[in-house]
Design a binder for these strands. Structure first.
Lengths: 218, 218
DNA sequence: TTGACAAACTTAACACCGTTAACTAACATG
DNA sequence: CATGTTAGTTAACGGTGTTAAGTTTGTCAA
């Protein structure tokens, strides 16, 4: 009797249909543009139908972002092949910034907006935690640990959490400032690309020791 | 005929009354808690009365934040007495972070939220621009320029805009990450104070040359 | 003193919003 | 075939920012 299976498949289909409609509104016009009624219009259902699939608007957006950020975490795998741990950290930071700037609404919602829904992690999310394949933070932490073990950091930077979180804050800051104030005429901004690279240069230079073997490279 | 003066004074009074009521709601419960009707209740006027004094809600919040951040810019004056420009930059960054963490809602609205209202700067704001007494960014830029002239930065960091904005992004990142994810159980955060100081250490270390005269200081 | 005008403010309403309750149609299963 | 479940609906509640129209109040010139 395949009817049960068909039903869960149909349920899944309408679920992703909702999320796709929400994503389009969200990515192109921001959170405030996403209303249950607009999503419902887009998929030709009544607004309340959405509540049969998602607890509320916040849960919908949370799931949407978590899903899309899974793509980021998985794309970090490309950087895993980089042998030098410090270079790998740089590359991870660069990719993180690019992703954030490409998806500012996702980024804002995930990293810049306090959310009570995120504070109590659902079980499904909790399993991903610490798995480098699905957890970008864990992947960064591992690279930091490796670089630390290889003696690549200055002696005053010896706490792996602190180093990881400082690096994360640095790249996060570039993205956050661009999203929040990039269009602000108050400030005469340097080119975005330069700001990104300068941050990577500065923060890496600040925390790592000079690798004498590569000293003449640049 | 002092009646005209009295009227502008009364106008000013109710204006600040509105802003005070708004500030209380805003600071304690966030943007979404600030509704025109709640403000109106608090000051015992009808909701629409607010529109006689502010164009709309965004303009109100914008003015509120601009006003409160004036306090920050002016408080930067305390750091002006620090002779060493690099130490002064560090102190400015520290104060900026503390302020942001103390007023997260203001911070979010000012630095982390794109605003069309901010894009077209009113004349009154434009005058403050560049005046170190009222413009925190300008003050930071001046210190960077001074340090640059004194040869305190590494040769690869010679663009004052780039250095200033990278430093700003770094300290901004610490605050933004704490506001957005500080309560997120996903990450095992290091103590906030340490994250702040580590960022200052890392970014300054990364951009400045080692001052041999002070090398043994720490 | 009175009439006219302007400013300050209010009430009523519009068009949205997220969300809940109650109802209905379709359908798999005993 | 009856029954209960499921997916969907409509109607409604209480909230939002904001506008339009009407009202009160105070000022000032004739």
């Amino acid at each position: 009797m395949g009817s049960q299976e068909r039903r869960v498949r149909e349920r899944e289909e309408i679920r992703t249909k909702i999320m796709d409609a929400a994503r389009e509104l969200f990515a192109s016009q921001g959170v405030e543009a996403v209303s249950m009624r607009k999503i419902a219009d887009a998929i030709e259902y009544s607004p309340t139908a959405i509540y049969l699939h998602f607890a509320d608007k916040d849960a919908l957006l949370q799931e949407l972002c978590a899903h899309d950020f899974g793509a980021l975490a998985r794309s970090f795998a490309d950087e895993a092949r980089i042998k030098d741990p410090v270079e790998r950290i740089r590359a991870l930071g660069r990719r993180f910034m690019r992703f954030g700037l490409k998806h500012p609404n996702h980024f804002r919602f995930m990293f810049l907006t306090p959310s009570k829904a995120r504070e109590k992690i659902p079980q499904k999310q909790l399993e991903k935690r610490g798995d480098p394949e699905q957890d970008g933070y864990a992947r960064l932490l591992l690279s930091v640990r490796e670089a630390l073990a290889a003696g690549r950091f200055r002696p005053e930077f010896k706490d792996e959490k602190l180093v990881t979180q400082t690096f994360a804050a640095a790249v996060n800051g570039v993205v956050a400032l661009q999203i929040g104030m990039g269009n602000d005429p108050w400030i005469d901004w340097a080119p975005l690309e330069k700001r990104m690279e300068t941050m990577l240069d500065a923060i890496c230079r600040g925390m790592t020791v000079r690798d004498s073997a590569k000293a003449g490279r640049r």
